[in-house]
């Protein structure tokens, strides 16, 4: 995981995140770049808002994935944007900037993993979870770079319940899963977590688990928090490095 802030001079804050996966030599991981513009005055036409209006855009670069993406945002990208907004809204002290807006623009320069495998598995939502956790972390770094007040640095983490090859093996929970490495992903959750406050700002859970196994749910959330805490350490480290 490599994180760097202040990469886009024209933006008020920006960050670049790189997550390397050790999956295959040909696959180099995920590269995200985030720029934060604002807080700036809302357009005259916008209605009054007592707190900052957050708008998030997540866009895959057309070349980011094996399947070429269009230039227009597709529903999955919109979805990512909405999740990201929910995750950041809990971290930003929004009422310090009435009547102003913050634009957070994330471009996914290289989408994680080889999407072919995830497609063959029938669901690319697992990849979206990884992308979202990266988006949350990089956006938090960019927000800090922009000097926008936050209650804490928020970071994303993913935990997944995976089943290894062979049907009889017991499913296990892994942190920061790589869909291509596992035979089958039963469920996954992406968590945005504030470590100092011990708060979860966004929880995205997906999968088909029996409702009776409450333990499993809490374990996954716990692992997700662990993942996001690890990401947060990198984030803090990077920010401190920048400050020094």
């Amino acid at each position: 995981m490599y994180l760097k802030t202040g990469v886009t001079p024209s933006a008020s804050g920006s960050a670049y995140l790189e997550i390397e996966t050790s999956a295959k030599p040909g696959v180099s991981g995920m590269k995200l770049s985030c720029s934060v513009h604002g807080p700036r005055a809302l357009p005259r036409s916008a209605p009054f808002s007592p707190h900052v209006v957050l708008s998030t855009h997540v866009k895959y670069a057309p070349f980011a994935t094996t399947q070429r993406r269009g230039y227009l945002r597709d529903p999955s990208e919109r979805d990512l944007g909405i999740h990201l907004e929910a995750a950041l809204r809990g971290a930003i002290i929004a009422d310090r900037w009435p009547k102003s807006g913050v634009d957070i623009i994330i471009s996914i320069v290289e989408g994680d993993q080889d999407r072919e495998t995830s497609r063959s598995q029938g669901d690319e939502v697992w990849d979206m979870m990884n992308a979202l956790s990266g988006c949350i972390t990089v956006a938090a770094a960019a927000l800090a770079d922009a000097g926008i007040d936050c209650v804490d640095t928020v970071a994303g983490g993913v935990a997944a319940l995976v089943q290894a090859a062979g049907d009889d093996s017991k499913p296990s929970i892994v942190v920061d899963p790589i869909p291509s490495e596992h035979e089958k992903i039963l469920a996954a959750c992406c968590i945005a977590y504030l470590p100092t406050r011990d708060e979860v700002t966004n929880l995205w859970f997906r999968g088909d688990l029996p409702a009776s196994e409450l333990e499993l749910y809490t374990h996954m959330v716990e692992k997700g928090i662990l993942a996001s805490r690890n990401a947060n350490r990198v984030l803090i480290d990077c920010l401190r490095e920048t400050v020094e």
């Binding site: 995981m1 390397e20 991981g29 690890n230």
Partner: peptide, 27 residues
Amino acid sequence: EDELPLAKAQPSAFAQSLFGSSSNTRK
């Protein structure tokens, strides 16, 4: 569970070419 090593990596070749050398200082 927090006792994992800090998952920090060196910048990739792409990032290096983007930000110059692997210095810690910002451009």
